[in-house]
Design a protein around this nucleic acid. Structure first.
Length: 579
RNA sequence: GGCUCCUUAGUUCAACGGAUAGAACGUGGGUUUCCUAAACCUAAAAUACAGGUUCGAUUCCUGUAGGAGCUACCA
């Protein structure tokens, strides 16, 4: 029996049992010459049942012709692949139901054995984190979890940009205008204090552009290891690190490997020498070293300045080489904004020219900017949405909403606080992750992030509802597990839909990992929650008189809750037991 | 100028080249003696424009208009 006729049989059975109609399906052997679908096919031909929009004109031209081109012989009939899918036997979905519910590792794909490093966050230590960084961090963390779920070994890495002119600007302004202020004395979080210095410097520069020279002097001194400059640098970086640590903690972000640019910025010089020896790179008369990419449609790219010092991309070449060697990486993913598309294109090309076969295993996960209604955020102009402020604001919103509903009344204060944070963060994280990474997204500070509709709290609420039912079932002493669900329980159409969605989870994970898009998982989690809420509304689960059906339902919703947790776990969103 | 990306309801987001383009917010109308109304139901509302490829295009190609980014001996 061919697969097609097997499906045909199942579909016929399904039609008969679901709709009580007599169905005559016939098959038709066709040969397809169209190159994408070349081969012999068995077409399954159904009388038109529910396809109300099908007319004699379009009949046979939709899916039927997708397979075979025009098939005038079957006019009056339609062959619909999706239709078959819709009607697949309830028996089949019950098998899926048991499979999903009884497999604790459900959704985890077999290990692929790939070791992947994900670099993200990589902050500058001259100002606090803002909303753009939040998108970067959430994407990096969730892509890491996603790749783990898809069966890979993942190393989360970050490269802290802790030296350079921009740092010296903050240092110079502090020295000149801040009168020895410290986080303690000013009562400010360290990264915010340093950020204020940076903004102050922008003002100083406007008043007197010569301050730039002072900053360059400072940078030279830093490179020479001048003890005073180094001491100041260490002190101010320390403040920033303390500040960042708090923000990371609040967001639930962590790293397996942290590099600092002051350790890595000299890397890559040897590589440049190797490239020169290979004849891949050229040295100009003035001593600067270049890579000619005109053959690839790009420009010449400088790798060493005429004074022999390295530039930004030089250290990236070096760190890439070191990372692949040190961790035996199969792949490296850089989570960096799309403003650096060109940079990564060049990086990959040059590594390829230098003869590294892993160069084509470098991916730039290029994400879109977060824009405000008035346009791009600019640190120097103070038009940024500060990360700490936003997190705090979300917490307050969650608190206000919870108190208004009174649903948390009676819980210990500590537990309430935990939930406010969980809900506020859930809203923020979902808001950002649900958008396709590569798209520019808009954030309007005047309209606070919603707690209703397609949001994180909606999913959290759904989970809390399920937990509530399960608690009540336990109180009533109802025992349930997969093994106790009898084999002859019939699933309702809504339950079949839920099982179908649940069974699709591993495929969604694979799909999302392939696309490096946690947004796929976010949308899936929402669909699942939405579907459940509809089911919940018209099926009083605990009121069910039939003990077998009741047990089956409890197993179903418990499985649902666990899949919701797995999905949102990838996104870094926690789900509460009550809210 | 050159290169890259983007354009879907009033707004924010969905849609392996496949069926009547899905949601949410907002707007209008409903649902609570019933497991949590942060929910559910219901109505109006969109593929920038012009061509092309295809049985079939929001999706692929070409052009036009509008928007963003890159085009440093900065990082």
């Amino acid at each position: 029996m061919t697969a097609e006729s097997f499906i045909a049989q199942k579909a016929v059975l399904a039609l008969q049992s679901l709709y009580g109609v007599e169905v005559q399906a016939s098959t038709l052997q066709v040969q397809v010459t169209r190159k994408e679908f070349e081969g012999d096919y068995t077409l399954v031909v159904f009388p038109l049942l529910r396809i109300s929009h099908a007319t004699p004109e379009n009949t046979g031209s939709a899916i039927g012709s997708w397979l075979v081109g025009n098939v005038p012989e079957i006019s009056g009939f339609n062959v619909v692949k999706g239709f078959l899918n819709l009607l697949l036997s309830p028996l089949y979905w019950k098998e899926q139901f048991v499979a999903v519910a009884s497999d604790p590792g459900f959704g985890l794909l077999p290990a692929t054995g790939r070791t992947i490093m994900v670099e993200f966050s990589s902050p500058n230590t001259n100002k606090p984190l803002h909303l753009g960084h939040i998108r970067n961090n959430l994407l990096g963390a969730s892509v890491s979890e996603l790749l783990k779920a898809a069966g890979n070994k993942v190393i989360k890495a970050t490269l802290v940009n802790d030296r350079g002119v921009h740092i010296c600007k903050s240092m110079y302004a502090w020295q000149e205008r801040f009168d020895g202020a410290t986080p303690e004395s000013s009562g400010k979080k360290g990264d915010h204090l340093v950020g204020d210095c940076y903004v102050e410097f922008a003002k100083m520069e406007k008043e007197d552009p010569s301050v730039l020279d002072k900053v360059h002097e400072m940078l030279v001194k830093w490179e020479e290891g001048d003890p005073q400059v180094r001491a100041l640098w260490e002190k101010m970086n320390g403040w920033v690190f303390d500040g960042f640590e708090q923000t990371y903690k609040a967001l639930g972000i962590s790293f397996d490997k942290v590099d600092y640019e002051h350790d890595t910025y000299l890397l890559g010089k040897e590589l440049v020498q190797k490239g020169l020896d290979m004849g891949v790179l050229v040295r100009d008369p003035d001593g600067s070293v270049w890579c000619d990419l005109t053959a690839d449609g790009l420009d010449r790219k400088i790798l060493l300045r005429s004074d022999g010092t390295s530039v930004y991309i030089t250290q990236d070449l070096g760190t890439a080489e070191r990372r692949f060697a040190e961790h035996q990486l199969d792949s490296m993913i850089y989570v960096v904004g799309n403003e650096q598309n060109y940079h990564f294109q060049v990086l990959k090309l040059i590594l390829g020219k230098l003869g590294f076969d892993w160069a084509d295993q470098i991916y730039h996960l290029s994400y879109g900017m977060v824009e405000l209604p008035e346009g791009k955020m600019k640190s120097r102009e103070g038009t940024v949405v500060d990360a700490d402020d936003l997190i705090q604001k979300m917490y307050e919103e969650a608190k206000a909403t919870s108190n208004e509903s009174g649903k948390l009344d009676g819980l210990p204060e500590e537990e309430k606080e935990r939930l406010y944070h969980m809900i506020g963060l859930g809203a923020l994280k979902y808001f950002i992750i649900k958008v396709d990474p590569k798209k520019t997204m808009l954030f309007d500070p005047k309209e606070s992030i919603d707690f209703n509709g397609n949001t994180g709290p909606f999913i959290q609420y759904t989970h809390a509802r399920i937990c509530s039912i399960l608690r009540k079932a336990a109180e009533q002493g109802i025992a349930y597990d997969v093994a106790s669900v009898p084999g002859d329980v019939t699933l309702s159409p809504k339950e079949v839909r839920l099982v179908k969605l649940l069974a699709a989870y591993p495929q969604k994970v694979a799909e999302a990992a392939q696309a490096l898009s946690p947004a796929v998982i976010a949308n899936y989690a929402y669909d699942l929650a939405k579907e459940f809420n509809q089911y919940y509304h018209d099926t009083p689960i605990l009121k069910e008189a039939d003990a077998a059906v009741l047990k089956a339902r409890l197993v179903l919703i418990e499985t649902l809750a666990s899949v919701l947790r797995k999905a949102t776990g990838i996104l870094g969103i926690e789900l509460p037991d009550r809210m």
